[in-house]
Design a protein around this nucleic acid. Structure first.
Lengths: 366, 366
DNA sequence: CTGAAAGCGCTAACAA
DNA sequence: TTGTTAGCGCTTTCAG
């Protein structure tokens, strides 16, 4: 029987046996079973830990033979690098937190999807943290965070304001989303809300609509988002010479679709006349659609309805919704870009980035 | 100036100064700034690391004085425990992975929300992993996982089948969700799909409907979910003495709402007559609603439509959708319960748990 | 290009 | 009740 090279038949048999029974060799090596370590691989391959580490991390300058021998040992033992140990020594977790009110609100679930996709591209994992309408949960995002959980935080606050966020000194880089808070010291990504609202109202005005409802301000909501949108609404009307009428600005008792439904229904019943509705988000727009249908008003025949966020529900609703569409993929991309720069050591002042938006026209404003 | 106890005025001044300037003391202690360690706290408090660790972890049997002194040092230095180091030594991460197709599909985002809520109750964090319609991504959930990333996995597969999952030997406990795969060796949580489908069809039958469409089988989808539901559909019809008609079982080209819309529209145009539609999920039901409206059929007047999953879109649609409602909170609770038992060492055979469901009646079947 | 040794920050035995 | 010591598994100097 002929064979070549340095591998003896006995070594081959041994290797086969090893391949067949990992637990066996580990036990034979005197290790507790169930965990293969770098040292185990090194021992089996007959090299140092450093060399195995080099192979695992694809370092250059490794001789092909050694590389192959180490890889074989890795495969035979079923070795998986332990991320925890690696993190402890490198000080990096490879994870970022995405703090949003809730994963099951359409806008946020779509943002989460985009951030996840963009992060994957950079080999980063995303830990979603839900703040669930609680200001305490929002504070916990920046304060008292355990050390070493994530390398950075993308945070869409709802309740915390600019000043409070500016005061806190989180121990990880932060990028802010949304319009609730925008301290000068922190990176921030948003769309031009004033412009977007103005353009939306201009669309309705261009269709000859003159009595346009803003739906709406939420009772108890102090965030900046509504202010910006209301300002754009106002600018568009004034520019068109349409007098502002405070009673056209409706308010609701909450952020749910049903709150918008109740609000618009009450307005119609109170005798308010209007031919357009600009909504703070798609859910409110769906509520408006339902309220109007319930009141016997046709959309877009009698009243045009404009949504905001261009979430999937804009396609699901009947009629489908025209909606202000922030470029969510771009929001995710820019946010992660800023965050990665911070994680890489950038320590300058806050960058405030504006991401483009457009209006997606569907049935509700035809 | 009078003072009592062992604290000298100088020490007080020092403490004030320390409180004012963390970086200062750390630098004075010869540490690189920016990271406060357990040892730093121990040094400042004049106790051992063990004692500080005890305080941090709320161990019993600590004298109040020591406890207070340590806490003071912790506050002054702004100490945060390093989770990575803790994980390395305890071997536990306190995290579980939730592997789902996508966070922005209504059913899964709602499941994610429930799992997150339940996990929080146990001090566990959830790492969401999106498999995005890729069987490779699904395999990666169980295979080649880095060691020590999570303590357990809740996995809702779509493409992997029972056998493939049974063959894989993941290095962390797993609980399976959904109907695609259910190996005997793995814990599993689902609702009684056959029963639910039967009850849904029975509801339609009870309204005098006799020609009930099943919408639908998805081209290329080999998962068990459709089979179960189709079986329940069949059972209900046979029990009512309604002959099965294969042409009433529609198929679609994909899982999106638009696919269902196209399918039902084509069926109507082809002259198919029916008075009820049982859908594989709420999105398909929304598609059916739109297709029927587009074809001039009224819901529920001409045709009743039944959704599945009872997601938020069932409330948003027009008309609102009657839907099969799995108890999602209970699914999350049971899944985490099984997983926690596994993480605590349980190593028996797979437990298969059935969670209750009901039918939530809304406008589409009135 | 590869090896040996130090140590990341913490907890867990074991002592005292 | 508190202190001491020895690692957890890995990467990273620094030698060779």
């Amino acid at each position: 029987m002929a064979y070549s090279g340095t591998t003896s038949p006995i070594a081959v048999l041994l290797a086969l046996e090893i391949g067949r029974n990992r637990a066996g060799i580990l036990l034979a090596m005197g290790k507790r079973s169930g965990l293969v370590r770098l040292a185990d691989v090194a021992e089996l391959a007959g090299v140092s830990m450093k060399t195995v580490s080099n192979v695992v991390n694809n370092y250059p300058h490794i001789s092909p033979q050694v590389q192959a021998r180490v890889q074989e040992a890795i495969d035979q033992l079923g070795y998986r690098p332990n991320v925890t140990a690696r993190r402890l020594v490198t000080g990096r977790t490879g994870m970022v937190a995405l703090a949003i009110p809730s994963v099951d609100q359409p806008y946020f679930s779509e943002i989460a999807r985009q951030v996840g996709q963009e992060a994957r591209r950079h080999g980063i994992r995303v830990l979603i943290e839900e703040t669930l309408d609680s200001i305490e949960a929002e504070r916990a995002v920046l304060k008292d965070r355990e050390e070493g959980l994530v390398d950075g935080i993308i945070f869409h606050p709802i309740h915390m304001d600019t000043l409070e966020i500016a005061r806190l000194k989180p121990n990880a880089p932060v990028v802010l989303l949304g319009e609730s808070a925008m301290p000068l010291t922190t990176d921030h990504v948003m769309i031009q809300n004033v412009d977007a609202a103005r353009e939306g109202v201009e669309l309705l005005l261009s269709q000859g609509r003159r009595r346009i409802v803003f739906l709406g301000t939420v009772h108890g909501d102090l965030s900046g988002a509504t202010d910006f949108r209301l300002q754009g609404y106002q600018e568009a009307l004034l520019a068109a010479g349409v007098p502002l009428e405070p009673e056209l600005v409706l308010s609701t008792d909450g952020f749910a679709m049903e709150n918008a439904l109740d609000s618009i229904t009450a307005a119609v019943e109170a005798g308010l006349e209007f031919d357009g509705v600009m909504c703070r988000d798609d859910l409110f727009a769906v509520g408006a659609l339902k309220g109007l249908a319930g009141s016997g008003l046709r959309v877009p025949g009698d009243v045009a309805v404009l949504g905001w966020d261009d979430t999937a529900v804009a396609r699901y609703s009947t009629p489908t919704l025209t909606s202000i569409a922030p470029n969510k993929a771009e929001i995710a991309r820019v946010a992660l870009e800023l965050l990665r720069e911070r994680m890489d050591g950038y320590a300058g002042v806050g960058r405030h980035r504006i991401v483009e938006h457009k209006i997606v026209t569907r049935e509700s404003t035809l």
